[in-house]
Structure formats: C-alpha cells, structure tokens
C-alpha cells in the first residue's frame, strides 16, 4: 500500500481581489522507500503541495491519505501526532533552534513524542553520528557551517523514524559542493535505511540523485516517471 496517496487534490487561495487556483487536480501515489524529486517553474505550486503533504495545510478539495489515514478527517492534535511520528521536515533555511545545542535540536521531536530524556539524548547522538557530526552534540547551531546545519536538520527529521521525509529546496541556501554532499547523504539514507524521501528542487543535478521525477506546471502534474538520462549528478 502506498504511503502517500493524493486523489484529485485542489488548492485555492482566495484573496480580496481574486481566487488563485494553485493546485488544479493532483493525483499522486508514492510507495514506501521511494526517492522522489519534485520540480517545476516558480509559482507552479511545489511548496503548496509539500505543505499539504506535510499536514501543515489542508487541500481545498480532494483526498489525501497518509500512511493509511485520511488526513482531512483528523483534528489538530492528531495532525500534530502525524507530523511528529510519520513525517520529517527539512527546510531551505535549516530552521534550527538557535539557543539549543545540536543534540537538543535533534532530540526536539522526541520531546513532543514523550520519549524519556536518556533515550532522547542517545538517539539524538546516534543520529548526529549517522549524518557525520559525531562530537558536535554540545555545539550551538551558529558555530557550524550551513551544510552542517542542514545535516543537523536532516538528523532531526529522521530521529523519530518517520515514514516520509519532506524537503523543500533543502540545498537552496548551499553551494554546489555542499549541495552534492547533502544529496549524497539523502541517497545513502534512502538506499541503506529505506527512508522515503520527497525533495523539491530547481536544479537538475540535484534531482538526478532521486529515482523518480514529478514535474509540476500550473498546478498540474506534467511528467511523472524515471529521472531523464540527461540529468547528471554533480559529484
């Protein structure tokens, strides 16, 4: 059974002046263990789609099933539970807690999951080691590079062992070498740990790390299939 299943999803934004039809009918199925890149021109609705997938926003119409439950029928607290246990987020701007150590940052989802302190710290350290940051547990986010901060964010997204990790332009703030390292990390996590990944990007050489491409245009899926052979990873 698919982890993510969208059927006829619409999203409108209504302002005083007009109603914007941003998503105009999205049907999409993503199986566990997939690595999907979403591309499309600016304003095509990629972030809007990701917000819906992340249970941060609700569709105007259509059905979204995540890990078996129909998201539209859940209340606030159940949605928070889904975001906590079933989903992991990686943002373009890293979004770490500036005052907390890296370890505490990574452990934060576990705080909301009610995991005991000792357990939290252990899992956070293990996760930091997995993204190549052992020894940095007590550092503060402003003491490390952007690429390292994004690794911390990835560790935080993964610490709760979510079914799906969503990353909206995770390399948008990074140079191309660092971007490639982050994508390499994603690729390894997907291959070795079977993490389901959905990554939004503008770059072909980033998308080239994925196994499947979804191309959005004007709120509709224009292409859905394997990565075209002309996409080259920049290694």
């Amino acid at each position: 059974m698919a982890v993510i299943e969208l059927t006829g999803v619409l999203k409108d934004y209504t302002t005083e002046a007009e109603t914007l039809h941003v998503l105009k009918g999205i049907d999409l199925k993503i199986e566990a263990g997939e690595f999907v890149a979403i591309m499309g021109p600016s304003g095509s609705g990629k972030s809007t789609l990701m917000n819906i997938l992340g249970c941060l926003d609700v569709p105007t119409d259509g059905v979204y099933r995540l890990a078996g439950s129909s998201v539209g029928e859940l209340d606030d607290s159940a949605l928070a539970g889904l975001r906590n246990r079933t989903l992991g987020f990686v943002f373009q701007g890293f979004n770490l807690m500036a005052r907390s150590s890296l370890e505490d940052n990574v452990a934060l989802p576990l705080v909301y999951a009610g995991v005991s302190r000792a357990d939290r710290n252990q899992r956070a350290r293990d996760m930091l080691a997995k993204v190549g940051l052992e020894g940095y547990a007590r550092s503060l986010p402003n003491r490390i590079s952007g690429g390292q901060q994004q690794r911390v964010a990835i560790a935080r997204a993964l610490v709760g062992q979510p079914a799906v990790v969503l990353a909206d332009e995770p390399t948008g703030n990074l140079d191309s070498t660092t971007s490639a390292e982050i994508m390499k990390l994603f690729e390894r996590l997907n291959r070795e740990e079977g993490v389901t990944l959905i990554v939004v990007t503008h770059e072909q050489d980033i998308a080239a790390w994925a196994k499947r491409l979804v191309l959005l245009k004007d709120g509709l899926i224009q292409y859905d299939g394997p990565i075209p052979p002309e996409f080259r990873r920049n290694e």
Partner: peptide, 16 residues
Amino acid sequence: TREIGIRMAIGARRRD
C-alpha cells in the same frame, strides 16, 4: 512566531 511554526511542524501540539 517562526520558532512556534517550526515546533508545530515537528510535532508540537497546541497544548505543548
């Protein structure tokens, strides 16, 4: 506000 948004995104409930 942004911090609150991040916390909610990673699973903070309203009562948290």
